[in-house]
Structures are given as C-alpha cells and as structure tokens.
Design a protein around this nucleic acid. Structure first.
Length: 321
RNA sequence: GGGCAGGUGGUAGAGCGGUCAAUUACUCCAGACUGUAAAUCUGGCGCCUUUAUGGCUACAUAGGUUCGAAUCCUAUCCUGCCCA
C-alpha cells in the first residue's frame, strides 16, 4: 500500500525554507503547500517573502493568494485546504511538501487538530472584551469546568474563544468531536499525532539567523516593500473589484511585522530608521517564538544544509514502499 | 570661574532614613499554545548556598552622622542646563 507520504519543511523565518523546498520538490517531483499565515493573502508578497511567479512556475505552489487581506483567514480555513491539497498532490502521484513558518497551521494540518467548528461571534466577543481575565475565567469555570482546568487563565483571547464555543455548542471544547472522551477521565486534549511524516527543520545558530533576518529585511525594503504597503492602503491594484480593496492601517497593524511597522512609518509615527530598527527587533523575537514551538517536537530532523535534507528525503522515500 | 539640576540594577526610570536586592516598563532568558497564531499569554532576571521569614555584595567614589543610609552631611569625580 502506498503510504501517504508527506514532507514538512519548517524553521524560523529567513532560514531558507522556500529555497530548500523548491530544490527538493524539483528533485523529487513534488509540489509545495505554503504553511504561512500571511502568504495566504493576495497582494502581500514582498513583506511575506512569497516566492516569485517565476519560482512558482518551477514548482507548483498551493495556498498562496487564497484570501483577501480584508478578510480574516484562520487555521480553521487553512487546515482543510491544506489537507485537501495534500490529497490532490498524492493523487497525481507527486510528493507533497508542506513548507512554512506558522507552527499552528503546520501542526493543525499534520496532526489533524480538531478545531471546533464554531464561528467567531463578534457580538459576544465585543461584549466580553471589556471583562478582565479573572472575570472571564470565572465565567468559563461555570460554563465549562473542564476546559477551565487546562486553559491559560490569564489569556483573554483564549478565554473568550472558550466561552464562545461552550455557548454555541453547549459542549466542552474538543469533546463534542470526540464523544469517547466525555465519559473518560482524560484531561488531555485528544490528538492524533502523525508519525509517518518526514519533518525537516532548518537549523541556524541565533547569530546566523539574526544576520539573515537583517539582510533579508534590507532586500525587502529595496524590493519595494513600502510601495507594496502603500498599494494595499490605496488599493490601486485592486484589480478584481475595481479598487474597493483598500485596507486600513488598523488591519495592517494586525498583520504584524513588516506590515505593522511600515504602516506606523507611513503614518508618521516612526522615522524610517526607527521603523527599520524596531522591525528587525520584532522579527528577531518572532523567530524565537517560532523556535519555542519547534524545539519541543522530537519528530523534527534538524538539518544544516541541502545535502543532508536530500539524503533524508531519499531514505524516507525508500522506506516501506 | 560662578549658579542650578543630576549621577540607582542590561536600558529607561521610581524610591528620598528602617518593612529595599530596590515600584514599573522595556530588553534579555525560559515556557505555553485547538478558529486573530507575524496573534495572545505565563514565569525568571545581582551573586552564593544545605533554596531558607538564609548568606554576601550593591543605588558614582571616599569619608562621616545614625541603633540603622540608595535615602542625611562633607569632599572628590562625572553629566546636563544657565550665567560669566
């Protein structure tokens, strides 16, 4: 039986995932699925480090430009799309490469996290927003004692979502998808960890990574990143709907990193140099947060160069087939 | 040269006789993570140890006052502003 092969390439930002992925995909007849929470948006190219059209011709890429930046795109959208893409690629007898730096998206996809299908309830959210974490926690404890046990009681974001779910379903968080756990005493969230994936992690020393980040930021600025953000604000390039695609500074803030800091610069809240320095710093911190997630996954095979990666892929493909 | 205001932990910046190893923010280090995830949140952050209502060294430097000083006094050095 042909195993459903899947290769994941992950690593902190700027570590060189895209280049490695393209090389491997060409070599092993693969297609790439981007696992990046910002590359899904149309018009956000330079700031997200999206591969060029030319590179996209070399290897077919999935899940780039699948959403409008005006709309909220989340894991709940991503996971099914990614899983579908994997299936399609396999059906073509090609090798899927899931490549990106958004850990949550990657793990939701490969470990099939069961994300409660409860739509965000904006009304409820805005009502709850004014409450303190303590108040929210008290509410949740009453509604869903079990979730309250495991949740981070200081995190309003999560508390609100948990309350939103229990109110909509009347059932505790992941349990309504897993009835077998309702009677059980397990407090662990059920998770199907996939072990037949090859996960390659690109290893870089912190110093090296920092240099790479700074260098790449410079390249992005030279490549017209600021103009790109201006474009989003004015929606000149809003091709489809005739320029009604303008996005706000507020939305850019939420996009984070390059979009956030360039937006602040364009609003005159930062000088050019401040923007560059603060952005560098923010990206450094971001890369550390990514690593915090990856560090604990013992499945990841950390590689130092393309050669190592290639060898591991060979071995993986040769296995039980 | 004279006057004034200051010198506090990696940074900014509180404290102005005891309860101060020193509020707070940031940085830094570590961590969490089930529909905003480039988001959101947590812990640690002088040194030592048998981890403790423990010991040691610290608030420019040197002295002094006091039972007790980052906090008061004196001198010195340094910084900023003002007048010459």
């Amino acid at each position: 039986m042909a195993r459903s092969k899947l290769i994941v390439i992950l690593g902190p930002t700027s570590s060189g995932k895209s280049a490695l992925a393209i090389q491997l995909a060409r070599k092993f007849k693969g297609e790439i699925i981007s696992a990046d929470s910002r590359q899904v948006y149309k018009g956000m190219d330079i700031g997200t480090g999206k591969v060029s059209k030319k590179e996209q011709k070399l290897v077919l890429h999935h899940l780039l430009d699948v959403a409008s930046p005006k709309k909220q795109f989340t894991v709940a959208h991503f996971k099914p799309l990614a899983q579908k893409a994997i299936k399609q690629i396999l059906a073509k007898k090609k090798l899927p490469f899931l490549v990106g730096g958004t850990p949550f998206y990657i793990y939701a996809t490969i470990d099939d996290l069961q994300i409660p299908e409860v739509q965000p309830n904006l009304k409820l959210r805005s009502k709850l927003r004014s409450k303190t974490a303590t108040e929210l926690f008290a509410m949740l404890k009453k509604l869903d004692p079990r979730r309250a046990k495991n949740i981070d009681r200081h995190n309003p974001h999560r508390l609100i979502r948990a309350i939103e779910i229990i109110k909509a379903t009347g059932l505790p968080v992941p349990l309504f998808r897993h009835p077998e756990f309702i009677s059980g005493s397990q407090d662990q969230i059920p998770k199907q960890v996939r072990n037949d994936v090859l996960i390659l992690g690109i290893q870089k020393s912190p110093e090296e990574l920092r240099k790479l980040i700074d260098k790449r930021l410079k390249q992005r600025l030279n490549a017209g990143m600021i103009a790109e953000v201006k474009g989003l604000l004015s929606a000149k390039g809003g091709s489809a709907s005739g320029g009604k695609n303008k996005i706000s500074h507020k939305r850019l803030q939420a996009m984070g990193l390059e979009y956030r800091f360039v937006s602040l610069y364009l609003q005159g809240k930062l000088t050019y140099n401040q923007m560059v320095e603060q952005l560098k710093h923010a990206i450094h911190k971001f890369s550390k947060r990514q690593m915090t997630w990856f560090k604990t996954d013992s499945r990841i095979k950390w590689i130092k160069n393309h050669k190592q990666a290639e060898k591991l892929v060979r071995q993986y493909l040769a296995r039980d087939n």
